[in-house]
Design a protein around this nucleic acid. Sequence first.
RNA 1: GUGCCCAUAGCUCAAUGGUAGAGCGCUGCUCUGUGGCAGCAGUGAUGAGGGGUUCAACUCCCCCUGGGCACCCCA
Length: 443
Amino acid sequence: MTPRKVAIKKKAPTEENLFRIPRGMHDILPADQVWWERIDKTARELADFYNFQRIETPILEQVSLFERTVGGDTDIVQKEMYTLKTKGGDFLALRPEGTAPVMRAYLDHGLGSLGQPQKFFYQGPFFRHENPQAGRFRQFYQIGFEIIGGVNDPIYDAQVILIFDRLLKGLKIKNTILKVNSIGCKICRPNYKRQLANYYKRYEKDLCNNCLRRLKVNPLRLLDCKNQNCQPFKEKAPNLFDKICTSCGRHLRAVLEYLDELEIVYELDNTLVRGLDYYSQTVFEFYATDSNIGALPGGGRYDYLAEFLGSKATAAVGGATGVERLIEVMKTQEVKWPSRTPRKVFLVHVGDLAKKKSLKIVEELRSAGIPVGEALGKESVKAQLKQADKQGSVLAIIFGQKEIFEESVIIRDLRTGLQESVILSKMVFEIQKRLKERPVENK
RNA sequence: GUGCCCAUAGCUCAAUGGUAGAGCGCUGCUCUGUGGCAGCAGUGAUGAGGGGUUCAACUCCCCCUGGGCACCCCA
């Protein structure tokens, strides 16, 4: 009659899998929140000071937004996007990066009319379907700063770099290097690409497979090859610095001069080529020298991005950093932060009647602005005090049957072990007094 | 997507092919309204999941899932 029942009852094997997180995803557990809060706070303060306004764009965007901007030939679009088709037939993607969406929002809402340039700051999750590795996840968080609109002024390039420099310093991350390069504009870049390709074509039969592919798809990346056999070709390859046009050269020089002025140390690296199509002129990446985690903050100028979206050319520059990578580096560099401040006051109840009134006492402390810890579900005084001790509380408020009758409360100093009975109406006052005192610890 | 390594309790790790132990943690007792120390006890693993070889599998083989590392690329 009911043969199906058997299958339903058999649960163990599959249910284990319900507790498994999908590949490349990660939980951010309470113990790690200190790091996240720290980064969040530092980034907000920087954004606030340098006048970047917060903007949040949706997690889902049209697939075509990224195809047009990031580039149809890039890894990000070709193999790393999470895409889906909605019931209505829209073709959407979980956003793999933040710059294009911010530009989309800027154009969509005509934010340029609010004054130019506009400066934006954002943070949130991004998604790329690639194999997890050190500092690499399928869902990861980025913090980004973008300056959109106005004129193409190298001072903005410098300011973006400055902010990321300050972010790293604010987080006490050491041993970083900043690599800067210019990849030219739409006039000089194709020119250079052609020269580079022509040069490499002569060595076609000696190149590694990757380079052969790059030669066809993205010659700029040829300079990035790590294969030993390909190294010699680099040396005589046409140098980007010699080939960019005069205005791009001037732009780069100006950016570097601003950085010099700010005393931000950089390395000119003509092999630095970013994998997203929308960059032009300035590109930059920060690295930690004692970590193999990959790029920390990175970004550049993207004056053509608006055009890719069918709008008129709009000057823009910006960058983003992966939050997990920052944390990873901070952990390996053993950056120390004070842990979350403990609840200094802990409430201990004794007996049913007192338990009944405990929530109300918590409320009283709350309205007085005194954070209070509790273990109201525990019955024994011992267990409650143990908890108070474990979380580093300084004062314990103890009240039970007797105290209810007397309308009083016991305040126990957990450092000295001394305790005193005070009347309930003076409880808040007495607690505040003791918290200020900070009595000398005795042993 | 490709290659190499890995998977045992909440955590860190043990155990010549004979159905699993420790430390830490957590709970409690010694101390029936008083913590930190100590001692004791308890809690906890159908060995990630599935299949195979074997009299016998945590141990050997395969698949799958997840993790680490590298390539690719990037944050």
